[in-house]
Design a protein around this nucleic acid. Structure first.
Length: 796
DNA sequence: GGACATATTATTTTT
DNA sequence: TAATATGTCC
């Protein structure tokens, strides 16, 4: 067919051989191993377009999964350019949001609803479930701990983390393997069970459940699974190296290896940097064994960075042992040398960075928007910001707290979820006294106790508060008033045809805006403003939704030639969009819980400041990597881990690789002799990663360095001298000097001390060092043993 | 219920 | 150091 050929040529334009191979790959599994900057996103998009335009695959049979919403949005936009309105029929989204769409749909399936045996899995979850985020989860864990009265040997945070890990590993509470010796494991499991009960009682799921439940349902109901296997005949996954075990399990269910499915996974094992939140590199490393006969295509030509930068990146990453061998190459010029910035402390470092940014801009080759400063931890950003502000360099801090993280917006979201689903206890607890309506801790506590006894949700308990023992008439009256608000909002939500009117109604009836305006402080007024913005977001959401509906509807009747005729035997296949008939308010809620902030505008004409993690997927002409010191980067935690050459260090190294390969032309690596960390002054040796970069890649122009550095052995050799340089920093070294002695500086046991509150006492033991060293003191006056912070003590 | 003091704790962060 | 959590008092 000639038109198809034309389309094909168009789609293969400017692609190199391996890229073409990936786009044109026929049927069966394919692993695209893509080095940094080798155009993988382009390959996925072109392949999707190819499937539709040339191979005539129906768009609704394609599932493209990305890692972030931002990536999904960008891919959708590109596909609309390539395919036109047809692209709206493709499912392009993250694992979580596609799972939630499928999960709602599965739960709506009448045969699933009728299947009582599934209740063990679903816990009675209905399709209108709400999604709980981290904060809600933590509240639930605390309540679960109270309920099951587990030994307080673990912090709620730690338990929650373990629960998340279990879910990431695709384990339901009952699948959890706990050996009877493992006390902590038992605590986790007990809490996990209670936590799941609370979650289900509120008709809620957490992020982990979104995937895990679908996996569990698919395992139980092969007929339902089969429907989705038939529907999604082509599955493409981006950033495969960052998938966790549940996600992989879901993929294996939808695209079982033995059927040689059309599963295309794209990723770079060298850029796997999310192990700490459950991602497993093994997924990508083991893919060829799991999907036997999978084709592997390597994209090794880099289009982004100059050779010098690639050489540096390669020198670092090559030290990792478990990786798929590949080496990036480029036909770009060698480029400029790397530059090493060495400074006294983090302030000098920041000033140096600011100065060089200014110079680069003045030279006129690189614009502010082409530059970025990376750091390992967020705490490092402050000094950098100060220096840039002082140097009048415009910058944007990428990430930071997002709009939906702000307290008032979260309150509003809690109200909305309660509107949809009044059983949501976590949301009710959040806003029962927001704005203040005189329902205090005691009242809430009695309410919670009673509801738990009666086995009803908190909302139901507020229906007739006079039943609750111990409440005075005022409390009863207030609870009744609160119930009236929620029930009226709930009724409104059932009727509302769009999200904005529901949000508007909620803001009025809850008095959220009103109370903030009444308060009248600058801060509360800006909060009120945020709430109006929230309403604006809902309006925008409605508009988009309407537009998408129009686009979808017009597809059918306009020119039919574009849309392939569906064969008769496919009639039974459900091809309706996955979002069909989700009520607008639910859909809006879904969006705000699954989508963080809209855009982290890497601003016009501004230097971007971000963590190395946030840098993934981006590129800049000039990149500054700061804090290149052992203990900062690699992070002290990796250095301290039981196996300092193990997975943790490997991940830091990959992070370094990611950082280096973001740079197109200039790479500046910066370190400081000392920096203060948690109020303590630390002397860190230069990063081991720095030492792994061949010296020849650096240009050491004397005048560019703060302190002259011998051309030979610029890094390691100087390490020892730093601490005793003549013009060294004027610093209070008392902490570092005491640090190797037993905690607080010599043996202090038996010393008499005085504490503001507890009076006189005698030190029994000491632990820790630095300003937060603690001592155990035996106080007189009936106070007894107390562990207090040493600096709050006076010698007595 | 809020103000104040005292204690605690410091990766990375998406969904 | 600095941001937050917890506890105590009125």
């Amino acid at each position: 067919m000639a038109p198809a050929l034309n389309a094909e040529n168009e789609l293969l334009k400017d692609l190199n051989e391996p890229q073409k191979e990936a786009v044109l790959h026929g049927d069966g599994p394919l692993l695209v191993l893509s080095g940094a900057g080798s155009g993988k996103t382009r390959v996925i998009t072109r392949r999707v377009a190819h499937l539709v335009q040339v191979r005539g695959v129906y768009p609704w049979r394609i599932l493209a999964v990305t890692f972030t919403n931002k990536a999904a949005r960008e891919m959708r936009e590109r596909l609309v350019q390539l395919l036109g309105p047809q692209a709206h029929e493709l499912v392009v989204s993250t694992f979580h949001s596609s799972s939630s769409m499928i999960l709602r749909r599965v739960l709506r399936d009448p045969t699933v609803g009728a299947d009582k045996s599934l209740e063990a899995v679903t816990g009675g979850l209905t399709p209108s479930f709400v999604i709980y985020d981290d904060g809600d989860q933590l509240q639930l864990v605390k309540r679960a701990m109270r309920e099951v009265r587990v030994d307080p040997i673990m912090q709620p945070r730690e338990i929650l983390h373990r629960i998340d890990q279990e879910k990431n590993a695709a384990r339901l509470p009952d699948d959890m393997v706990v050996d009877s010796e493992d006390l902590r494991g038992m605590v986790v499991q007990k809490t996990y069970r209670a936590y799941q009960r609370l979650l289900r009682a509120a008709n809620a799921v957490d992020f982990g459940d979104l995937l895990l439940l679908l996996v569990a349902l698919f395992r139980k109901r092969s007929d339902v699974l089969e429907q989705y296997r038939r529907r999604f005949q082509h599955i493409l996954v981006d950033e495969f190296q960052d998938t966790n075990p549940v996600q992989y399990e879901l993929l294996r269910l939808l695209a079982p290896p033995e059927r040689r499915p059309n599963l295309v996974v794209v990723g770079d094992d060298d850029q796997s940097i999310y192990r700490w939140r459950g991602a497993s590199v093994d997924n990508i490393l083991g893919f060829p064994e799991e999907y036997v006969g999978a084709r592997v295509v390597k994209l090794e030509q880099n289009y982004r960075s100059d050779q010098t930068i690639l050489d540096a990146a390669h020198a670092v990453i090559a030290r990792n042992t478990r990786r798929m061998p590949k080496k990036l190459w480029s036909d770009r010029p060698k480029g400029e040398h790397l530059q090493l910035l060495m400074n006294r402390d983090e302030r000098a470092e920041a000033q140096d960075v600011a100065r060089r940014i200014h110079e680069l801009q003045r030279e006129g080759f690189i614009k502010y928007s082409g530059m970025a400063v990376f750091y390992r931890t967020n705490a490092q950003s402050r000094v950098l910001e100060e220096a840039l502000r002082l140097a009048r360099v415009p910058y944007t801090l990428v990430s930071g707290r997002s709009f939906y993280d702000r307290a008032e917006v979260r309150d509003a979201a809690a109200y909305l979820r309660l509107m949809v689903n009044p059983r949501s206890d976590a949301d009710l607890l959040r806003i029962i006294n927001t704005p203040a309506r005189g329902i205090g801790d005691t009242t809430v506590e009695r309410l919670v106790d009673w509801a738990q006894q009666a086995g009803v949700s908190l909302y139901e308990a507020t229906a007739a508060p006079e039943r609750i023992p111990g409440l005075n008439t005022a409390a009863v009256r207030r609870l009744t008033g609160f119930h009236a608000v929620v029930s009226s909002l709930h009724a409104f939500a059932q009727e509302s045809k769009d999200a904005a009117s529901a949000v508007d109604q909620m803001l009025k009836e809850s008095h959220l805006v009103e109370s903030l305006v009444t308060e009248g402080s600058d801060e509360s007024l800006s909060r009120a403003e945020n709430l109006r913005e929230f309403l604006g977001a809902a309006q925008e959401f409605d508009l988009n939704r309407a537009a998408a509906a129009v686009a979808a509807a017009s597809l059918g009747d306009e020119e039919g030639e574009e849309v392939p005729e569906r064969p008769p035997e496919e009639e039974s296949l459900d091809d309706s969009p996955l979002t069909a008939d989700v009520p607008p308010l639910n859909a809006f809620l879904e969006q705000i819980s699954l989508v963080g902030e809209a855009d982290a505008e890497v601003g016009e004409g501004r230097v971007a400041l971000m963590t190395l993690h946030a840098a993934k997927g981006l590129e800049f002409d000039a990149v500054f990597i700061t804090g290149m010191e052992d203990g900062v980067f690699p992070h002290s935690r990796a250095l301290a881990s039981e196996d300092p050459d193990g997975e943790e260090m490997a991940e830091e190294r990959r992070l370094c690789y990611v950082g280096f390969t973001r740079a197109r032309k200039r790479l500046f690596i910066s370190l400081a002799q000392c920096r203060s960390l948690f109020g303590e002054l630390r002397y860190n040796p230069p990063s081991r990663f720095l030492r792994e970069v061949p010296q020849s890649l650096f240009g050491f122009a004397e005048q560019e360095l703060e302190t002259p550095v011998p051309k030979s052995a610029p890094m390691v050799a100087r390490k020892r001298n730093w601490a005793d340089e003549d013009d060294g920093p004027r610093v209070d070294r008392s902490y570092s000097q005491t640090s190797d002695m037993d905690g607080v500086g010599g043996d202090v046991r038996g010393m008499r001390v005085r504490h503001e509150q507890f009076g006189m006492g005698r030190i029994v033991s000491a632990d820790g060092n630095g300003p937060n060293a603690k001592v155990t003191v035996e106080f007189g006056g009936g106070v007894g043993l107390k562990r207090v912070i040493a600096r709050f003590l006076m010698p007595g």
